[in-house]
Design a protein around this nucleic acid. Structure first.
Length: 704
RNA sequence: GCCACCGUAGCUCAGUGGUAGAGCACACCCUUGGUAAGGGUGAGGUCGAGGGUUCAAUCCCCUUCGGUGGCUCCA
């Protein structure tokens, strides 16, 4: 007797061990038909995802997986099964088109799946083959062949793999054995021995026909086991859903993501430019993007003054010796631009016949000096701190600078504004007494909180990087580490958002708090960071005079709430989909005269707006208003002031937003001339988000 | 850095072994129109760069630069 408990709490009893499919059938024929798999739990855990053919030989909780949950939401388990199964179908299809392809590994992912394969020498798949592959896949799906599992004991299974001669599958099997598997399983798409099959631990949907919709997405390369020294593989991405509708909405989402992509919007809205002639990964801030950046810098600058920071300026280069002391040179040589050597030195070395290799070595050893583009701002700031004697009364000393740094990123990693070779950090270094760490870290976080709150960015992750207790790579006194870690943890807790503590994620010099956001295509980016540092003060032998008249070592806090201006603005473009709130927007109001007859009134409004420091223009073109509206809306200008003879007569403006796609909804109606100007000014002054209470938009649309 | 794909007008893209096309943007003219594109005319390209094959290359081949998607990396 096997007792099966269903999710609603009801219990079914079976005389002999049923398969998951039989359990489904016992509940109803409809369920049996739509079932894709089951989740079986022997204890209180979430349980294991299994095939419908899986036999349940003891009492268990069983949930039958169908494409949609009972509440109509899409089941992640169902997608997992569909995609895992579709990976097999795609592999079979590709195998038909490219005989001799070796399979490596094909897992399902969050929104898609891939299959890594090794193509025979000289053969390669291209995106042009996608149609052919999809056509083959469609055939396999139409044949509705069952996924049939069979198990072999390890020795037989390994012998089978040996004879087939795939080192990749042999390795997969070996890893499964190492992980404790007692048998190896295969899945045939149809009949074992007759149809296509793959070593696979499963589970799968019952038959190929369950794949309602699929698509081959893209082609990429990967390394076997992610190791660049091992075989290079071809990775084919695809995705699958239970229905065509789901695939369509997935496609729509991808299009939407593309529309929000900061690289696309940045070009469309002329926010920044990357120029071949200037160099990869080097951002040129155009006038419009510069306005956004400037507003952000002013915003944070105000807060820094309030918190007692001192603004400093430092040059873009520094002597190699500075970086030998800080430890950046030569150890991080790979990620820095090569050093700059002076004319005389170069001439002398050339006459000696010094090779590049020698030059490099002699620089590393300190025999030759030169300058380096700064990879970080801290060394310069440290020298400012060290430039005068410091007393415990002066502490903390907070030095802030929008400092531009340069790093040599691999060419394949550079892209858009989020990964660049030159970027400006909203950097600051706080030189603090040990007893001030906790409070100062809190102060740093309050800035981050203010920024994220003001910009309405709530979808971020906080990571507290702690030291790995088993590692000896960390510098400093363990007792200090404990205190610093506690300070970071407590500070993170004040943010009111969930945070994760990650052991081993600390820098070697101290613990840190990182803020991580995702971009539209799901890539994670670290933005702001706060790091406690015990190391650099030692390397630079920093000190201050204590109350006891003895010399004490300060602790440094590195912090950059935005991270880098480039990356932050890139993420911000995507966050707002280019529609910046009024205070950040390059153009805040566009005045749209109905015709030339209203030109004077339009100019009067423009002058009044400009007098308040509002960024406004007039569209005096001979287009009709409809066209002017379309242009302004496409430029994502928050407010349009439509003015015609009626408005001039009543001294009002007709306000419209770039608003929604419903034209009527974006037309806000009339507002007195002075109230409009004052309303916009107030909205900017308070840095309100678009549509937030207090904005012109909200005031005009609020119910009477 | 590695692999695949891509590079044609300011932008988005079509196209061909016989020296190029659309839409939008731009300029000018007509139109003065009340909430997401009125109409006409025109200008604009060394087809990313260098080399090769060919009677002939934007198209085929090689190299190079740049972009995209991944992999690897990221103090």
């Amino acid at each position: 007797m096997v007792r099966i408990t269903l999710p609603d709490g009801s219990v079914k009893e079976f005389a002999s061990a049923p398969t998951a499919g039989e359990v489904a059938a016992s509940i109803g024929a409809g369920l049996a038909k739509s079932a894709l798999g089951a989740r079986v739990s022997l204890n209180a855990t979430a349980g294991e995802l299994v095939d419908l053919s899986h036999r349940i030989d003891q009492d268990a909780k069983v949930a039958i997986i169908t494409a949609k949950n009972r509440d109509g939401t899409v089941s992640p388990d169902a997608l997992y099964l569909l995609r895992h199964s579709c990976a097999h179908i795609m592999a079979e299809a590709i195998g038909r088109i490219f005989p001799g392809v070796q399979l490596v590994y094909g897992p399902p992912l969050e929104t898609n799946f891939y299959y890594d394969m090794a193509f025979p020498e000289g053969k390669a798949m291209s995106t042009e083959d996608f149609e052919k592959v999809e056509a083959e896949m469609a055939k396999i799906v139409a044949e509705n062949r069952p996924f049939t599992r069979y198990d072999l004991p390890i020795d037989q299974g390994m012998a089978k793999l040996q004879s087939e001669g795939s080192k990749f599958k042999l390795d997969n099997a070996q890893r499964a054995i190492d992980a404790g598997s007692t048998a190896l399983s295969w899945y045939a798409t149809g009949e074992p021995g007759k149809n296509w099959e793959d070593l696979c631990r499963g589970p799968h949907v019952p038959a190929t026909g369950k794949i309602g919709a699929f698509k081959v997405l893209s082609l990429a390369s990967s390394y076997w086991k992610g190791d660049e020294k091992l075989d290079r593989l071809t990775r084919v991405y695809g995705t699958a859903f239970a229905t065509k509708e789901e695939l369509e909405s997935y496609n729509k989402l991808q299009d939407e993501a593309k529309r929000r992509d900061h690289r696309v919007l940045g070009k469309q809205l002329r926010l920044f430019h990357i120029d071949e002639m200037v160099g990869q990964g080097l951002i040129l801030w155009t006038p419009k993007g510069s306005i956004v950046r400037n507003e952000l810098q002013n915003f944070i600058g105000n807060e820094l003054r309030r918190q007692g920071y001192f603004q400093v300026y430092t040059p873009h280069i520094g002597k190699l010796d500075l970086y030998r002391t800080s430890g950046h040179f030569p150890y991080y040589r790979e990620s820095q631009y090569p050093p700059i050597v002076e004319h005389d030195e170069m001439a002398r070395l050339a006459s000696e016949g010094c090779t590049c290799g020698e030059l490099s070595n002699r620089m590393a050893s300190g025999e030759i000096d030169g300058y380096m583009l700064k990879p970080m701002n801290c060394p310069h700031h440290i020298r400012i701190f060290a430039s005068e004697p410091r007393s415990y009364r002066d502490m903390p000393v907070r030095l802030a600078e929008f400092g531009t740094v340069y790093r040599w990123e691999q060419s394949g990693e550079i892209g858009g504004m989020t990964r660049v070779r030159g970027f400006t950090q909203d950097d600051a270094h706080l030189f603090v007494r040990e007893d001030q760490i906790a409070e100062e870290v809190l102060g740093c976080l309050s800035i981050v909180k203010l920024i994220f709150g003001t910009l309405g960015m709530h979808d971020y992750r906080v990571r507290v990087g702690l030291r790995d207790p088993d590692s000896a790579k960390y510098v400093g006194d363990p007792a200090n580490w404990d205190k610093a870690e506690a300070a970071c943890r407590n500070a993170a807790a004040t943010l009111g958002v969930p945070y994760s503590e990650e052991a081993g994620e600390a820098a070697f010099y101290g613990p840190k708090i990182d803020f991580v956001v995702k971009d539209v295509i799901g890539r994670s980016w670290q933005l702001g960071t706060v790091q406690v540092d015990y190391n650099l003060p030692i390397r630079f032998d920093l000190s201050y005079a204590g109350a006891d008249n003895k010399s004490h070592r300060p602790v440094m806090i590195h912090r950059a709430p935005f991270g880098s201006m480039e990356r932050f603005v890139g993420v911000l473009i995507e966050h707002f989909a280019g529609a910046f709130p009024c205070w950040l927007n390059p153009e805040q109001v566009r005045v749209l005269p109905i015709s030339e007859k209203s030109a004077d009134y339009a100019n009067e409004l423009l002058a009044a707006l400009k007098a308040k420091g509002i960024r406004a223009t007039v569209d005096h073109g001979n287009d009709r208003v409809q066209a002017k509206i379309k242009i302004a809306a496409e430029e994502k200008i928050p407010y349009m002031a439509v003015v015609g003879p009626r408005d001039a007569e009543g001294r009002v403006v007709s306000v419209r937003t770039r608003g929604s796609m419903t034209p009527e909804g974006a037309n806000l109606g009339e507002m007195p001339f002075d109230a409009f100007v004052a309303g916009i000014a107030a909205e900017i002054e308070q840095r309100l988000l678009s549509g937030a209470p207090g904005t012109v938009q909200a005031n005009l649309t609020k119910p009477v």
